[in-house]
Design a protein around this nucleic acid. Sequence first.
DNA 1: CTGTTAGCGCTTTCAG
DNA 2: CTGAAAGCGCTAACAG
Lengths: 335, 335
Amino acid sequence: MNIKDLAKILNVSPSTISKAFRNSYDISAETRERILAKAKELNFQPNAFASSLRTQKTKTIAVVLPEIANNFFTLVINGIEAVAQKQGYHVLIYITHEDAQKEKDFITSLQSGRVDGVLISLSQGTTDSSHLLELQEKGIPVVYFDRVLENIDAIKVTTNDFESGYAATEHLIQQGCKKIAHLLFHEHLSISEKRKMGYLQALSDYDYVMNPDLIITCTGNHNMDYKIIKELLSATALPDGIFSSIEKLAILSYEVCNDLDINIPEKIKIITFSNLETASLLNPSLTTMTQPAYEIGEKAATILFNLLTKKNPASKNDSFILKSSLIKRNSTSIN
Amino acid sequence: MNIKDLAKILNVSPSTISKAFRNSYDISAETRERILAKAKELNFQPNAFASSLRTQKTKTIAVVLPEIANNFFTLVINGIEAVAQKQGYHVLIYITHEDAQKEKDFITSLQSGRVDGVLISLSQGTTDSSHLLELQEKGIPVVYFDRVLENIDAIKVTTNDFESGYAATEHLIQQGCKKIAHLLFHEHLSISEKRKMGYLQALSDYDYVMNPDLIITCTGNHNMDYKIIKELLSATALPDGIFSSIEKLAILSYEVCNDLDINIPEKIKIITFSNLETASLLNPSLTTMTQPAYEIGEKAATILFNLLTKKNPASKNDSFILKSSLIKRNSTSIN
DNA sequence: CTGTTAGCGCTTTCAG
DNA sequence: CTGAAAGCGCTAACAG
């Protein structure tokens, strides 16, 4: 069944059918109704790809992510999907699993005209983005979010990681912590770096001595990281505060503390970047620095659609910075 | 830039180019290399939709979900995506937000030939699936997972919810609970019903008296549910065990217990269906019944691809049942 | 092994 | 307001 068949059935021309479906002005309300009614009755819908081929619009965007089993990216997708749904767009998902090569392959395959635009958060290992520039040269706009490269002219949506790193550290300082460790992953990306800078600045502003042994770069491998953190927490001079850049590392720290019988929050206070909404509820001693994940998705998608529809398009290197917020449990449940 | 242009540049015919890209046997290794090399140099990829139009294959599947900010579905997507990636398929995501009408609209729009197959977990409100049958009549296979309708001939991937409900209840009984409440949502779906049946059967097998006041049907609205649970836990005869069918309701129960100063697990033990991996770690007193979410995604996707490639296709109403598992924290950390 | 040709299903002029 | 015809970019059948 196609437009031609339906045309025969209704004794009109294919182009009239097409017009009916696209709400063209060039058609009487009456014939349009008649056509749409019959189409519904016969359960007919014009072929999307044939239409795309002709119009050179796919009504589809791609979202490329390092991972998804992580509340941050889940919320981002929600935000993106909400905007896409409103605009009648379709959303393709690609998960790189932090593999820069896979990321490159995905991006390359998107040159086949499958999508109108791309939203991407880079994998840890990505150092150059030439493949993304090629895409853009082909006329497919790209909006970067959260995990971006510093030195690249591109439209970016990020959060205030320096300030948040600062605020997180300051929070621990205000809680009376004297010896504050910082956990992070080694990345080629600006995020961890900025958070660390915030940490260092806070220490400096409050006249703390910076101790390089307290800045712990983890690997991403669960067992190795467990060991690394265990070592940190087995030292004779235990830190009394941990600022973790990554939720997973904070959870690991909990595990280690459990196993070493270190009392949280009496002996150690922990604060972590996290979008696990239930985290602080399940464990009141866990304070989180939370990124506005849903809003990031919304914002990035909105910018992309503005670009696609050419209404209020952002310019080549606009940068949008949203704000994270510190979430503590209310005092009643801290007892 | 298209196949024709490239053909001119290389002095071959368009069909030769096409063959080179599709690894046709009808081409010499030499020309293929030459063509692919040039294509790479010029950054050319054949248009996917034109190809789809011709071959009637989209290399794309749709995943339709009620929600995503929930570890279960996140893990399912991971499983699906892993299989799709291996097969070179693209994955479209549609989130219904538990809205049966939206679900219907999505499914209807998938009749436009955008996908080769569909994986779906139904929204709470869905009672009939005629729209999905229409899809199947158009030759687009559908595999249902987790949230399925009972009385429908379809390929389904689910978990052993009756047995799990039974085991969860039994666990509380074995922990010494005498008065076990059950929290659930009202759904038109079989899942909650089966879990409840398991609960009832366990009570009966252990000679507990079933008390209808302990079976609490919640609404999905946070504030209302808070009130409902608060009422339950304010009763003079407090239950000493809660078996929650839904993670959210267990978390809410924690909140209520916090606010009412009810000690967990001394006064009340809680067990819940959940795929929040960190839940029991963050709070050792929370025991979870965990569905094999990733495996469900994998299984459902594999079945779909078998259908699409016609290798080992499942038959019209095959049902696959995976097993959930009870996860407790090890005893050391319960102190 | 390579090339020619027709057509997948739709949209878009342009004529009427 | 409606219709005829050309073509989006690709592939499949067939001829050479």
